[in-house]
C-alpha cells in the first residue's frame, strides 16, 4: 500500500439481486486530497461510495466480494463494530436530510450518542463547527428552532457541520451540490478546498466542470467499471483511455 493511500479498494464486486452493479473495482484514494469519482448517472458511483462506510448493509439482496482497506483495516470483513468505522467518515448526501430535531441538536447528535454530555463542551463544539461551515452568523440566535426551517443551502452546510462534529478522517460526499443554488454550491466547494488540509475527501459527481475546478485526483467510472484513475492534471490533460476522452469531450451527454 502506498504510504499516502487512505482508502484502498481491491477486487470489489457488488451484486444487487442478479444485477452486477460494481465490477472488479481497484482504486487507491490518497490521503488529505480531494478525490472525485466521476461518471454518468447510473454508473455505480454512489454505490461505491456507500460501500466505504457500509451503508450498503441497509439494502436488500446485496452481495459484496472483495476488500476495502481504510488504514489497513478491511471494512467489509472487519470484526470491529461497524459504527466505529462509520464514525471515521462523515457523509454528505445529494439533498440535505437534517435530523428531526433543532439546529443545535443536529450538530450535537453525534457527540451526544458517543457519550459526550458536558453542556459547556457541547456548546463550544456546536459553535465551532457551525462557524467552520459559515453558518453560525445565520443561526446563532435560533439554535433551538427545527433544522427543517433552514433553506436548502443552509441545511446542507448544517449537514456538513454535523458530520465534521464527530471528528471524522474522511468525508464522503454524494453529489453534495446537486440540489443547491450556484452560490450555496460554491460555498460547499470552497469549504471542501479548505477541509482537504485535514480530511480525505471523496466526492461523487457527474458534473465535469465541478471536477475540473476542485479535483486533485480523479476516478472515472462507466457502467460499473473503473475506466481510468489518476491525478487530476494528468487525467484531464492526458487521458489514456478512449472512453475517458469521449466523456471529456461530452460524448456521453
Amino acid at each position: 500500500m502506498n504510504e499516502n493511500t487512505k482508502i484502498k479498494v481491491e477486487h470489489l464486486d457488488l451484486y444487487i439481486g442478479k444485477q452486477h452493479i460494481l465490477k472488479d473495482i481497484n482504486i487507491e484514494i490518497p490521503e488529505n486530497k480531494l478525490t472525485i469519482i466521476l461518471g454518468p448517472s447510473g454508473c455505480g458511483k454512489t454505490t461505491l461510495l456507500k460501500c466505504m462506510n457500509r451503508l450498503t448493509d441497509l439494502y436488500h439482496d446485496v452481495k459484496i466480494n472483495g476488500s476495502i482497506f481504510i488504514d489497513n483495516e478491511d471494512v467489509l470483513h472487519t470484526k470491529t463494530d461497524v459504527t466505529e468505522i462509520r464514525k471515521k467518515m462523515g457523509l454528505l448526501s445529494q439533498r440535505p436530510f437534517p435530523l428531526p430535531m433543532n439546529i443545535y441538536n443536529n450538530v450535537a447528535y453525534g457527540l451526544k450518542i458517543s457519550g459526550r454530555r458536558n453542556k459547556k463542551a457541547l456548546d463550544a463544539r456546536v459553535e465551532n463547527y457551525l462557524k467552520q461551515v459559515n453558518l453560525w452568523d445565520e443561526v446563532f440566535d435560533r439554535l433551538h428552532e427545527p433544522a427543517s426551517k433552514l433553506s436548502i443551502g443552509q441545511q446542507q452546510r448544517l449537514c456538513l457541520a454535523r458530520g465534521l462534529a464527530v471528528d471524522p478522517e474522511i468525508i464522503l460526499a454524494d453529489e453534495p451540490t446537486s440540489a443547491l443554488d450556484p452560490i450555496s454550491s460554491e460555498t460547499i466547494e470552497r469549504k471542501f478546498e479548505e477541509l482537504k488540509q485535514q480530511y480525505t475527501i471523496v466526492m461523487v459527481t457527474h458534473i465535469l466542470r465541478q471536477a475540473r475546478r476542485i479535483a486533485d485526483y480523479v476516478i472515472f467510472m462507466y457502467m460499473g467499471e473503473v475506466i481510468e484513475q489518476g491525478p487530476a492534471k494528468e487525467f484531464f490533460e492526458n487521458p489514456k483511455m478512449e472512453r475517458t476522452k469521449a466523456y471529456l469531450q461530452g460524448a456521453f451527454n
Binding site: 459504527t83 467518515m89 462523515g90 436530510f97 435530523l99 447528535y109
Partner: peptide, 11 residues
C-alpha cells in the same frame, strides 16, 4: 437517507 445520516454519525 435519514437513516444513513444517523448511522454515518456513529449511531
Amino acid at each position: 437517507e435519514l437513516t444513513e445520516a444517523s448511522l454515518s454519525l456513529g449511531a
